[in-house]
Nucleic acid binder design. Structure first.
Length: 466
RNA sequence: GCCCCCAUCGUCUAGCGGUCAGGACGCGGCCCUCUCAAGGCUGAAACAGGGGUUCAAUUCCCCUUGGGGGCACCA
């Protein structure tokens, strides 16, 4: 075991890259980067019916957005079918596999009977020791592994520990379909062996498969990889994460305005821990990541916590980077900013990123910077601009106009004006804010007034003086 | 039905025989404050139940219950 670890993420391109897959990819990637090993990407497209090029793109894009770079080119499993077939033929020749002529209908009936009888639903090995006779001549057949029928198979798992399966529970799985194409079971094992994969880290939905794959590995005489099965992610209600919960694909998180760094940190903490640490930037994660601290139980998505983390990374991220994130986000919505809007955005970014939790929220809060002229009031701002407030606005406006148009000077003027008229600063500031931004909350008022400039600010304020 | 896995505050988790059961998100209160955030202080909130083992169980074992996964010529 002196060789560097080789890990892989092997999704099937039958849909988007979902959050659970993203986490599996992340864990594999982290371990590879932590150890200086290799992280491979293999597209398991042996199911020709369900695999689509769109899904392949979605997975590749999702991985790229998540910042999970793989080593070398992605391999496509279907392209390796001849090799898979070769292995199956070898097994057949060695007597470790056999042809089964049972039809699909026959097997379905068999399972039905087993179910009714309360017996485990397994292939009964009806062709295991039977020679094909004249009747089978030219009939379609599948190739099955002649699995061991006694004893037990133990999966040594780095997250779950040793898991033991009775071999009587494992049946003779299909290696080659009747059309000659390899099954997933055959393909993964052959590919992992050929690619030199040392660590198979995947979801617990594959735990049972591990036992069966172990038998195939043994029959092939290949090296046994280190297994690790990760608990699945459930929806906020604890039920299986499904389309019903929406927000399944990583792209959905991108569109909701979360940063890749946020997703990596969040997904890492969902099932992995390092004492009391919550904020774990990727560089730190690479340094710390190990298999020992992976939890065994399924976790649920918590959007509140995700929001909180995203807000944290907004505050941590440089303003220029955030401007780039915002413009990229807007570009995806086919929006572009004018030169002025962009300049304002850059200037206001330190204040904007301080109070938003998602890019969507940040952009909503920045809309008043993107266009010129009087604002349309939202409900809260409208409620704020009572006749009395408008009167305050009128006098405050004159006080402001009489001073230097800088943040500190404007604030001083407003404070002096408030004191002179015997009201609190808030009573002066809120009407101004409503007229200036069209909203009841915004980044610091005086900073925004200065940023928009005297002329533009006065146009907006005067619009709401009766 | 059969097999496998899991089980600490509402949620994510720390804990690896003796702890006032800790942290984070969320929630309540106070402070700060031009709004909204952020920040500081603070409060409520958990060992699923029952048996063992042990001087001592959240921690080890068994059962129950509850969740999850699997049982294809899908991956």
């Amino acid at each position: 075991m002196s060789e560097k670890p080789v890990l892989r993420f092997a999704p099937s391109p039958t849909g988007m890259l979902h959050i659970g897959g993203a986490r599996t990819a992340l864990f594999n990637w982290l371990y590879a980067r932590h150890t200086g090993g290799t992280f491979l990407l293999r597209i398991e497209d042996t199911d020709r019916e369900r695999s689509t090029p769109e899904a392949v793109d979605a997975i590749l894009n999702g991985m790229t957005w998540m910042g999970l770079d793989w080593d070398g080119d992605a391999t496509y499993q279907f392209a390796r079918a001849p090799r898979h077939r070769e292995v199956a033929e070898k097994l057949l020749a060695e007597g470790k596999a056999y042809r089964c002529y049972a039809t699909a209908e026959e097997l379905t009936a068999m399972r039905e009977e087993q179910k009714v009888a309360g017996k485990p639903m397994r292939y009964d090995g009806r062709w295991r020791d039977k020679q094909a006779g004249l009747a089978e001549e030219g009939k379609p057949s599948v190739v099955r592994l002649k699995a061991r029928q006694t004893g037990e198979t133990i999966v040594h798992d780095v997250v779950l520990g040793d898991v033991q399966f009775e071999n009587t529970q494992l049946d003779d799985m299909v290696l080659l379909r009747s059309d000659g194409t390899p099954t997933y079971m055959l393909a993964v094992v052959v590919d992992d062996a050929d690619m030199g994969v040392t660590h198979v880290i995947r979801g617990t939905d594959h735990l049972n498969n591990a036992a069966r794959q172990l038998q195939l590995i043994e029959a092939m005489g290949a090296a046994i990889p280190i297994y690790g099965h990760l608990p699945l992610i459930n929806g906020p209600d604890g039920a299986k994460l499904s389309k019903r919960h929406g927000a399944l694909a990583v792209e959905a998180y991108r569109d909701m305005g979360y940063l890749p760094e946020t997703m990596r940190n969040y997904l890492l903490r969902l099932g992995w821990s390092h004492g009391d640490d919550e904020i774990i930037p990727t560089a730190q994660a690479i340094e710390w990541f190990n298999f020992d601290s992976i939890g065994k139980s399924a976790a649920r998505m918590d959007y509140k916590k995700l929001d909180n983390l995203n807000g944290h990374y907004f505050r941590e991220t440089a303003g220029t980077t955030m401007v780039a994130e915002v413009t990229a986000f807007l570009a995806r919505e086919k929006r572009t900013l004018t030169m002025t809007a962009r300049q304002r955005l850059e200037m206001a970014m330190p204040s904007l990123k301080e109070r938003a939790k998602t890019l969507v929220e940040l952009i909503q809060g920045a809309e008043f910077l993107f266009t010129d002229g009087p604002r349309t009031l939202d409900a809260a701002a409208d409620k704020l601009l009572t006749p009395e407030a408008r009167a305050v606005l009128a006098t405050a406006l004159r006080a402001l106009d009489a001073t230097d148009w800088t943040g500190p000077a404007l604030e001083a003027a407003a404070r002096a004006h408030a004191e002179a008229t015997g009201v609190k600063l808030g009573q002066v500031a809120q009407p101004l804010r409503a007229a200036l931004t069209g909203k009841a909350s915004s980044p610091p008022l005086f900073e925004m007034l200065a940023l928009l400039g005297r002329e533009e600010s006065l146009i907006r304020l005067r619009a709401y003086v009766n």
